[in-house]
Design a binder for these strands. Structure first.
Lengths: 167, 167
DNA sequence: CTCATCTAGTTCAACTTTCAAGAAAGAGTC
DNA sequence: GACTCTTTCTTGAAAGTTGAACTAGATGAG
């Protein structure tokens, strides 16, 4: 799927450019902000924190590596490194999967849970202050809809999600 | 500003959680997508590409390092490394600033311009396909408004941008 | 002028991410 | 069972990022 690019490129309109710039600024500023907040208060970057949250919500507080990677939208390689680090911190433990001897479960430890309990309030406050406390309820609804549409279009599975895939 | 956190934390509602998850998924998927697209077609990650674009739009195709860092929302340190790499590729050149002997200008070279001309169409197409071609005009307008509000709240300067900063 | 202070930019070490390669186990075929 | 193909997860090196320390030049007070 090499973006056929027949004909002249359709450039962005002025409004689209402005929206795109605002999108890039807001998303990078927010990501940086959360990374620093969590690095300071929990000693890890945002994505690592997200992994612990996922685990905390999974049945048995454990998940297969591949599943966790898929849910968190990261590569298995990246997850391997991340879990190694979280393991060193004592927040996650690996265990062999009983049903598939290739498999590993990442398990949230008690220390990991405790860490989440301690840092969740500050994290939620940061998210609130950056996003939800600044938007109207209609904007929140609209943002949700927009983000779901975009995510759906980018999911690897839905290769058929390319819009006008008719000639 | 240590997020005072007096009283019980206001957790996210179900809808807010769902919006937050959708936001995280969409933004990470899109960033990954653009990083790969540009790595493949232009040989550099998205943020480096953005630096070249900024330079291409600046008067004289040159900018002071600090200004460039500010506009691109990255640290000066990161910019130093990035420019070093772009310089090695021949797309950017450093020059001493005439008016301030501490200063450096990053200058877009002819090769850099050429590279942009070659890869811009593919990049725009990717952005279009991921975002603008999937949203209605009202959604695009709404997204712009939302992102501007969020960015404004996160700008370092606007420390006074904390919403209810009255007691 | 001299001093302290600030700003511009770089550099170093520690850490994270990526990509390609690889070991090990499951699954299907003949 | 032997073969091939696939899936699961890890590893190692290269590239990128971060935060703190550092150099050099500007700036303002006395």
């Amino acid at each position: 799927m090499t973006t056929a690019s027949t004909g002249a490129p359709r450039w962005l309109t002025d409004e689209e450019q402005s929206v795109w710039r605002a999108y890039l600024h807001a998303t990078t500023l927010l990501e940086d902000h959360l990374d620093r907040q969590l690095q300071r208060d929990a000693g890890m970057p945002h994505i690592y924190y997200g992994l612990l949250v996922q685990l905390s919500q999974a049945p048995g507080r454990r998940m297969r590596m591949t599943e966790l990677a898929k849910d968190a939208k990261i590569t298995r390689s990246r997850l391997s490194h991340a879990v190694a680090r979280l393991e060193k911190n004592g927040w996650v433990r690996r265990e062999d999967c009983p049903s598939d001897r290739r498999g590993q479960n990442a398990v949230l430890t008690e220390e990991g849970s405790e860490m989440l309990r301690r840092s969740a309030p500050g994290h939620v406050a940061a998210v609130r202050q950056a996003m939800f406390d600044r938007l109207t309820p209609e904007q929140v609804r609209g943002l949700g809809e927009i983000m779901r549409v975009m995510a759906a279009g980018l999911e690897p599975e839905g290769a058929g999600a390319d819009l006008p895939w008719l000639r």
